[in-house]
């Protein structure tokens, strides 16, 4: 494993996590959460756990985001924090 790639991706992951929790629009949270999942999938590919990475790419970045957007479509985008 190459540690510079690891550190860069981990930093992005942490930024995405903080941003997903702190933006005041739930649709933005959905997209940032998808980005978070995809970066997580990259991290697992770097570590060699290819099956886990594949699952996360199809589940976290794909279906979870769709469920999220569908739920926001039926509720509201508004959030106070």
């Amino acid at each position: 494993m190459h540690w510079p790639i690891d550190i860069v991706v981990l930093t992005f992951v942490i930024f995405c996590a903080i941003a997903a929790l702190s933006v005041k629009d739930l649709l933005a949270t959905a997209i940032l959460f998808g980005a978070y999942s995809f970066l997580m999938c990259l991290l697992w590919t770097i570590m060699g756990a290819v099956d886990v990475a594949f699952t996360e790419a199809s589940v976290g970045a794909g279906v979870s985001t769709v469920f999220f957007v569908a739920a926001i479509f039926r509720t509201s985008r508004r959030t106070k924090d």
Binding site: A17, A20, L21, F33, M40, W44, S64, I72, T79
Partner: peptide, 20 residues
Amino acid sequence: KNNLIKKVVGMNIFQTAIIL
């Protein structure tokens, strides 16, 4: 967090951290 969906996102981040 005050919003229920934000809480679920927090839970998912917690989960992925442990999986990582």
